[in-house]
Amino acid sequence: MKWLELFQVAGATFISSIVLVVLYSLGVRLTAIAADAEQKSPARMRSLAYVCFGACGAVVLFGIYLIVPYFSK
């Protein structure tokens, strides 16, 4: 068995899952900040939250692209 490749895949999976959780959590937090009544610029916070959610979706779609053999021909 090729242990180096196994550790590379495990490391990439671990890092990408952390990035995914951080992006989603940041998007949720920015949405909560935008809903606060005392916030001066809720539109900017909401747009940043949508950027985080979009990046989260892009990471998921890239993972699907890497997994499905039909897309990576």
Rank of each mutant, 00 (worst) to 15 (best):
W3C: 07
W3I: 07
E5W: 01
L6W: 00
F7E: 01
Q8I: 00
Q8H: 05
V9L: 01
V9Y: 05
V9R: 02
A10S: 11
G11T: 01
G11N: 04
A12Y: 09
T13G: 07
T13D: 02
F14V: 01
F14W: 06
F14E: 00
I15E: 07
I15H: 04
I18P: 09
I18K: 04
I18H: 01
V19M: 02
V19P: 06
L20C: 06
L20T: 11
V21Y: 08
V21W: 06
V22S: 04
V22L: 03
L23W: 08
L23A: 09
L23M: 02
Y24P: 03
Y24C: 08
Y24W: 07
S25G: 15
S25D: 03
L26P: 00
L26M: 11
G27Q: 05
V28Q: 13
V28I: 06
V28K: 11
V28L: 11
R29F: 08
L30K: 06
L30E: 07
L30F: 09
L30P: 06
A32K: 15
I33P: 01
I33F: 13
A34Y: 01
A35P: 10
A35Y: 09
D36N: 09
D36I: 05
D36V: 11
D36F: 12
A37C: 10
E38F: 02
E38Y: 07
E38L: 12
Q39I: 14
Q39D: 05
K40M: 13
K40A: 09
S41D: 04
P42L: 06
A43I: 13
A43D: 11
M45A: 15
R46Y: 15
R46T: 15
R46F: 15
S47T: 10
S47R: 08
L48A: 14
L48D: 09
A49T: 04
A49L: 10
A49D: 05
Y50R: 12
Y50Q: 13
C52H: 03
G54D: 04
G54W: 08
A55C: 14
A55W: 09
C56V: 10
C56L: 13
C56Q: 00
G57C: 13
A58Q: 03
V59P: 13
V60L: 14
V60M: 03
L61T: 14
L61R: 09
F62Y: 03
G63K: 07
I64W: 08
Y65N: 06
Y65S: 05
Y65G: 08
L66H: 01
I67G: 00
I67M: 10
I67K: 12
I67H: 02
V68H: 05
P69F: 04
P69N: 06
P69Q: 05
Y70N: 02
Y70D: 09
S72E: 02
K73C: 12
